[in-house]
Simulated scan of single mutants.
Amino acid sequence: MRAKKAPTLHQQIINDIEGNILSGAWPPGHRIANELDLAEQYNCSRMTVNKALSQLASANLIERRKKSGSFVTQPQAQSAILEIHDIKLEVQSLGLPYEYQRLARSTRTATSSDRKSLELSENADILAVTGRHLAGPGVFCLEERLINLAVVPEAREENFIDTAPGPWLTSRVPWTTAEHMIKSVGANEHYAQALDIAKGTACLVIERRTWSHNGPVTHVRLTYPGDRHALVARFTPTDPTGKATAF
């Protein structure tokens, strides 16, 4: 029987780092030893280490940052554009513990901006709730939500400390129509602090409005660090012959 061939140093470095990442020993954001230290640890050339790290980066297991080093990547969630998804389930599907943190809650007479967001008349009352969704040690997204108290008066009594408003609304108010707007923005000081990222970092923003038979229900702005979320859409042709009209 032929003896099993020992892995090369290049492959051993890959196997060791990959094992630490997949086992959870190295969580997202963990900084990996620099090339010189790894070369000394494995008694090999720096070129061998660089090749191994480049392969791990190509597999999206690590992120190489110029002048900063190599870090375990944040797992990236995918959600369908035309669905109203549960953020808690998204996080758990990544194998990470989930937590919701309420940052602010207030009731007020709708401002001009609120009325525009929810298509409300003057003197309407709204509930404003801001919170963060956490994935493991990191912030997954920031949620800024307005709720129309004329349509959902029971929300006035909810504190939303342990439960995010989204699942609470979904379980209580049947919605009939939803609208999504998607854009990319650079994080200003407020969002950088809330998401624990550097100012100017690219962020994915999803703004959604939902309506019920009784009128507008809620407007929510979800802001994600751009490297932690992706949107997926599947379409079917509208031509009755079944022929695709665009590619």
Rank of each mutant, 00 (worst) to 15 (best):
V232M: 14
P153C: 05
T238L: 15
Q11L: 14
H85P: 04
L56I: 04
N159G: 03
E63Q: 06
L53N: 00
P28R: 13
L120V: 10
A150N: 09
S113V: 15
I81C: 09
I62N: 05
Q12A: 11
V232K: 08
K243W: 08
S106T: 12
D114E: 13
A246V: 14
T163V: 12
E83R: 06
E144T: 04
P167N: 15
T218S: 14
S58V: 03
M181R: 14
L103P: 01
S112R: 06
G69W: 04
R65C: 09
L204Y: 03
R64N: 05
Y224T: 01
A150K: 09
R65N: 05
A128H: 11
T73F: 00
P27I: 14
S121Q: 15
T201C: 07
P240T: 04
I87N: 06
C203K: 01
A110E: 01
S212T: 13
R132L: 11
K243E: 13
V173I: 12
A39T: 02
G200R: 06
S106R: 14
G186Y: 05
P137M: 05
P216L: 02
V129C: 08
F140R: 03
L38R: 04
R156Y: 09
I147Y: 03
L82A: 11
Y191R: 02
W168R: 02
G166C: 01
E143L: 07
M181I: 11
L149K: 10
R228M: 05
Q76N: 02
L127N: 00
T177E: 13
V151M: 06
T210F: 01
C203T: 03
A3D: 10
A192Y: 11
T201N: 09
H133C: 11
E207S: 13
L204N: 05
V139W: 07
V152Y: 04
K66C: 01
T170W: 13
Q193S: 13
G166R: 02
L231F: 12
E157L: 15
H85F: 07
N20L: 15
Q193G: 11
Q92V: 08
A150F: 04
E144A: 10
S112P: 00
T223C: 10
I126G: 08
L56M: 09
F71R: 03
P27V: 02
H10S: 08
R132Y: 04
Q11C: 07
A3C: 05
E144M: 08
I81W: 06
W211M: 14
L103S: 08
R115I: 00
A198S: 11
V151Q: 12
T218Y: 00
S45E: 06
N123S: 12
L89P: 00
P167L: 12
R108Q: 13
V185P: 04
A194D: 03
P167C: 09
W168K: 00
Q193W: 08
I126M: 06
E143V: 02
E90K: 09
M1N: 11
A192L: 05
S112M: 04
Q11H: 12
V91K: 05
G131P: 01
P174Y: 07
V220W: 04
Y191C: 04
A192N: 08
S171N: 12
S171T: 11
A178L: 15
P216I: 05
D227W: 05
I84F: 10
A150W: 02
H10R: 13
E119P: 00
Q55P: 02
F71L: 01
